[in-house]
Amino acid sequence: MRLGFAVKVLGAGGNQTTVDPVSVLKSNDARRWQSEPHVRQSIEYVAEIFHYLYKSDIHMYRMSSDFAPYLTHPDLPQFHHQLTEAASELAELGALARKYDIRLSLHPSQYILLNALDEEVARKSILDLNAQAQILDSMGCGPEAVVVTHVGGVYGEREESLKRFISRYKNLPEATKRRLVVENDDVSFSHSETMKIHEATGCPVIFDNLHHFCLNPEGVSMRDALTAALGTWPESVIPKIHYSSPSTSFDVVETKETGNTGRAKTVQKWKVPPTKAHSDFIDPMEFALFWEAVEGDKRRSFDMMLEAKAKDVALLKLRRDIARQIEFGAMRPIPGF
């Protein structure tokens, strides 16, 4: 099993207990359009990330959806040809990922809605999905490199919204369909509904454990949902799943209140976090129980994308925590972990 994390790299490396903010590695050229950002700069940043991942024995990574800045912006055509302009550099970056055995993925933002009611929103979303797939193609990535998307909005008509996703998916370019996978979410569309999309289109399903915990009206067990999702992937491709722990920390909220003197003052209050919020780290006890629940199944092997706010630091800590349990004899070794 390969473990991975998303986008931001805190860069702790061998420092196991503290993180220096200046060690954070940039993941994309984030300059405003007036400063003429370019994917070439993002390539330089991500190459440094790949070197760091290799040194840290991390072999899966989600690149920023802004890797190629303003690539599909309708009012900034000067950015539309970046992938062609940087073709050789993209190929070199892909070769570096293959050399280091780093599995890559992209996950467009929540504003990418393939099933949108508004045709213009859907059109722009399709352009973005096509561009994300083209990035991975330009890097020469194999079929394990995927573009992850959610179903989108319900818009008061669940079945019609599912049908719109299915219809538009079927009309996507083949190059985009080869990369696209659909993930269950925590608010709108459950695992069972993503399975309906797979049955209608063949689109592979990403299983997300926290989303399944938050939205599972069909009452499908974690193990059964995972097994079903793994079975949607082509036999020649190792599936991947998303794993996270819910936040257990209060959110600090600042509000303005009028005091006894009539003057406004800032007051801090503690707010209970929503269950769907990701924690900074992965709870190792929870992970051990999850693995115990699914490990005995005669299922396919899979890779795991950790969605934790502490990013690579969370991954490295989980590795140490689980290694200790294996050392105690409380868990069997996890291949590739």
Score class of each variant (00 low, 15 high):
K311F: 00
H278R: 09
M139Y: 07
F213L: 14
E92W: 03
W233S: 00
K256L: 08
F213S: 15
A47C: 14
G259T: 05
S279L: 14
L117V: 12
V252F: 13
E85F: 13
N115L: 00
R2P: 02
L10W: 04
T84H: 10
R2N: 04
V146R: 06
I197V: 11
V205M: 09
P333T: 05
F290Y: 09
N209Y: 09
T227M: 14
G14H: 05
C214K: 06
S244Q: 01
F302C: 02
H107C: 03
S245K: 03
I238T: 13
V22G: 08
G4N: 02
S42W: 06
L136P: 00
N28S: 09
G156C: 07
F189C: 03
F328H: 10
A97S: 01
E218H: 15
V294G: 03
E120D: 13
N171L: 12
R62F: 02
V313L: 11
D118P: 05
I241N: 02
N15Y: 12
V24H: 08
P234E: 03
H242G: 08
F281Y: 11
H80C: 08
L127Y: 13
S125R: 01
I58V: 13
G14P: 06
K309W: 09
D101E: 10
F189T: 00
M305R: 00
D66M: 15
A225D: 06
R158Q: 11
T84M: 11
S35W: 14
R62A: 02
V252A: 14
T72S: 08
V205K: 00
V182M: 00
D66G: 06
F287H: 04
M331R: 02
Y100F: 07
R263V: 12
K256E: 14
M304P: 01
D128F: 11
V237T: 10
I282E: 02
R164Q: 07
P37D: 04
Q34E: 12
P108Y: 03
I326S: 08
I43Q: 01
N209E: 13
I326W: 10
V22I: 07
T261K: 06
G296Q: 10
K8E: 08
H278V: 08
V46C: 05
G11A: 05
F79W: 12
R223A: 11
R103T: 06
E48D: 11
N216T: 14
F50V: 03
Q34C: 12
T275S: 13
K271H: 15
T149Y: 00
F79N: 01
Q325E: 15
G262V: 12
E36K: 15
K269W: 09
I112D: 00
S23V: 13
K265M: 14
L162T: 02
L117D: 10
M285V: 15
L113A: 07
H150T: 02
I58E: 00
I326Q: 10
N15V: 14
A91N: 08
S56I: 12
K265Q: 09
V187A: 09
S138K: 04
V154Q: 04
L162F: 05
G296A: 09
H150V: 05
H107G: 00
R2I: 03
C214G: 10
D137P: 08
M304A: 05
Q268F: 15
L83V: 05
E307N: 03
F165L: 01
